[in-house]
Write a protein that binds this DNA or RNA. Structure first.
Lengths: 211, 211
DNA sequence: CTTTTTCTCCCTCTAAAGGAATAGTCCGGC
DNA sequence: GCCGGACTATTCCTTTAGAGGGAGAAAAAG
């Protein structure tokens, strides 16, 4: 089936859990057509190792110490526009998916995927074919229909999620309480929430904030 | 070092991510003194397989489909008080840790633990010695100094976290709005929060609610 | 250079949330 | 039987949030 003479797919794994790296490494190295060339335990390391090894595929966890997945995607792609990045994470919020894919990641899959699906995804991405399961694609499409929050609104949302009052938020951002309220109002409208607490729930579910 | 004639430690792995199970299985099976006898992908399966195999150790993820880790700990230990359960999870909220350990889990460790630590933990738990890293132990102690929420307060907190208003909460729980406020007030006091949104943030960080 | 978006600030008004204190009922433990 | 915790409910009062507007300045997009 697999061409014996073909060069193996060179893979870097980036995940902060040694157990997950072991699992992936075992799976990958058992395949005749691929091999793990390096493993990273955080975002910084992922970027460094990509530079060093220039692999065919990098499998990336979204939440990692030092620099999170989205930031790694951004950095690597701006230096290597042809990089094939496969996001592999437990988070299925539409915002995470949207951010990664719109920034140029070639694939996005969830950690509860079966072994075969993971391997197929790596092979697809290695050939520069995008890999997106139907459920993930659906979320990305959902997200596109929703209004985006501005940077300032995200700043405010972050503070709202920490339980800060409008007055408190205003003080921290050096704006008036009225302005803080204006931003909160915009957030509620865009997230279709009737209270700040609901807005936090929605934003969290969508992966817009990290608590 | 390891006695060759000694019976191997029989381990069951319960985690909803195939990748994690693979990683753990590989690590465990490489050791001369232990072996994986079964793998479960959800809570129900974990309970069933424990009954069937009666392993020396069961390694449990906290968040699993169908039945979560705490519930599995409860069920297995009420049928087998001597069961050696090792919790392995990404969540380090004091409530999770406290619940598991106080219900009789023998160990609790985080998924970012190094390989050696994981194996040591399995060996410790297999010999009925509790395994608790210092950071985890510290959180359990912290939790003991904090007031517990009553069941009703947890019900209310869950609804608060979904963004419901006091009136809404009252309707859903068939109580008056005043009573809902009383509960919310008690929650704020116990969690040392000044607003419901902060209470949600605190509760989430402590692992008291699942969003 | 326009146009649009973003960020800022302002107003009024109503509804909701939160602080403080009190109290009756029920249930389980001692 | 008594006591304490849990759940329920109440009243009074203050503060905060949120709905509904409008509006100017700056920055980004066209």
């Amino acid at each position: 089936m697999v061409a014996v003479l073909k060069r193996k797919i060179r893979v870097i794994l980036a995940d902060d859990h040694p157990v997950v790296r072991d699992g992936l490494a075992t799976m990958v190295n058992q395949q005749p057509d691929m091999e793990v060339v390096a493993e990273a335990g955080d975002g910084e390391e992922a970027i460094t190792l990509y530079e060093q090894h220039q692999p065919d595929v990098m499998v990336l966890d979204l939440r990692m110490p030092k620099r999170d997945g989205v930031a790694v995607v951004q950095r690597v792609l701006e230096a290597h526009p042809k990089a094939c990045l496969l996001i592999m994470t437990t988070y299925d919020g539409d915002e995470d998916i949207f951010q990664c894919l719109s920034q140029g990641a070639k694939g996005y899959l969830l950690k509860d995927a079966r072994r075969q699906e993971i391997l197929s995804a790596i092979r697809a991405v290695a050939e520069d074919r995008p890999y997106t399961s139907s459920s993930v694609a659906a979320k990305a499409l959902q997200r596109m229909a929703k209004p985006s929050l501005t940077q300032r609104e995200l700043d405010v949302l972050q503070l709202v999620a920490q339980g800060r009052s409008n007055k408190d938020i205003a003080r921290r951002l050096s704006i008036t309480e009225g302005t803080a309220k204006t931003h909160v109002k915009a957030i509620l409208t865009k997230l279709d929430a009737i209270s700040r607490t609901e807005a936090v729930a929605v934003a969290h579910k969508r992966g817009m904030i990290r608590l």
